[in-house]
Structures are given as C-alpha cells and as structure tokens.
Amino acid sequence: MIAGLRGGITIGGLAAAIKLMKHYYEKQQLASQLEKQNMLAELQTLKSQLHPHFLFNTLNNIYSHAQETAPIAADMLLGLSGLLRYMLYTGNAPLVPLADEIKMIQAYINLEKKRYGEELELSIQLPGNTENLMIAPLIMLPFVENCFKHGTSSVLENPWINLNIALKDQEMQLKLVNGKADKMHAQEGGIGIENVRRRLTLIYPEKHKLTIMEEDELYIVNLEIKLAARPEPQ
C-alpha cells in the first residue's frame, strides 16, 4: 500500500514536472515572440522616420537649386513639401482641428492654381470660427483633388471650381461643384473616393451624409458631417 502510494506520488510528480516544463517553454516562446515583435516595431519606426527625413532633405535640395533657374517650380516644391509634412505627420492622428484641415486644402488649391495661372476660375467660401471643432484628417481632400484630376484638367476652356464649407453648430456642410467636359463620365468609383466612403462609414456612423451627382457639365459633391468638439484643456 505504501509502495503504491509512493509510486502514485512519483508519477504525479513527474506529470507536474512535465507540465511545469511545458508551461516554462511556452512562456519562453511567447517572450521570444514579443521580443521579436518589439524589434520589428522599433525597426519599422526607425524606417518610417528615415524615409520622410530623406524625402524632405531631397526636396529641400531640389528647392535650393531651382530657386534661381525655375522660381515657379521651386515655389511649387515648397508647397508640396508642406502638404507632405501634413499628410505624413498630422494625417496619422484620429482627429485634427478643422482649421488645420481647411488650411491644408487651401494650400493644395494654391499649389494646383500655379498649373493653370489665370485660366482657372475659383470661388471659395470658408467658415470663420473653426477653432473648437475636430475632424478626421484628409477626409475632404480627395473630393477637392478629384475636381482637378477629373474635372478642370479635362476642360479645355474656362475651368472652374466652386467650394463652399459652412458650419451650423457642430455640423459641417461641404458643397463642391466643378465643371467638366461634355460627355465625360465621372470617376466616382476611383480608389480615393471609395476609400473616403469607407472611412466615413467607420469614423462617422450615422453622423454623415454624402451624395455625389453628375450632370451634363457638372460634378456636384454634398457632404455633411456631425463633428466632434475640441476637448477642453485639462
């Protein structure tokens, strides 16, 4: 009876030892995986910092060389550099001040204006007090970009764009109208617009309304978003 008891204890001890060893091995494997993931994340962070650094250094060098020989191109490079900084560094935030987003859109329009000179007719109405509202970054830009890409660039004479952004309490209303060449179909299904549709659905469920219409000589975009208020400083 005692021998049987000792045998049972020995077997139980072996089973417990095997279980502990297995647990220790799994814990070591998990620690190794976490360490590897941390190293990869750190490497990715370093790469993400290096690539923009290289990009902006290159743009600055080109800008310096172009100032005397091609001042308009140099000015456009400077504008492009500012847009890229915003997209790379600010565009990753979940929300940004509406004022910053509007400034970025104005900078993009100014950059495009240099391509057209006096040929482009622009009508822009913007709200005054935007400091206390937040918006998802780069949510409006694809619509403005679409105007230039599929609208004004195809109009041979008198290209024009009308942009109106208005506020009613925390609701933002954007209306964007631009001319297009006759018989040219809208590029509504492009990647940029579909991406924005998806982002609006995810970020502003039940808090937005988007309609895109095409007429004979017009593209019309209407976007309404219930924006978030800027949090009070602690």
Results as ranks from 00 to 15, higher is better:
I2E: 13
R6T: 05
R6P: 06
G8V: 00
G8N: 11
G8D: 09
I11Y: 15
L14S: 11
K19W: 08
K19Q: 08
L20I: 13
Y25K: 11
K27M: 11
A31E: 11
Q37W: 04
Q44M: 04
L50P: 08
F56R: 02
F56E: 04
N60D: 15
N61R: 11
Y63R: 04
A66R: 10
A74H: 01
A74S: 10
A74P: 00
D75K: 02
R85C: 06
Y86P: 03
M87E: 10
M87K: 09
G91M: 08
G91P: 02
N92Y: 08
L95T: 13
V96E: 07
E101S: 11
N110Q: 09
K114Q: 15
L122D: 00
L126P: 02
N132E: 15
P137V: 07
I139E: 07
M140W: 01
P142F: 05
F143T: 00
E145S: 10
E145C: 07
C147N: 08
F148Y: 04
K149A: 05
T152A: 06
S153C: 05
S153K: 03
L156D: 08
P159M: 07
I161K: 03
I161L: 15
N164M: 07
K180M: 03
K180F: 04
K183Q: 14
A186T: 06
E188F: 15
G190H: 03
I191K: 12
I193M: 04
I193L: 14
R199V: 12
L210G: 05
T211V: 09
I212Y: 04
M213R: 15
I220G: 03
L227F: 09
R230V: 06
E232T: 14
P233R: 13
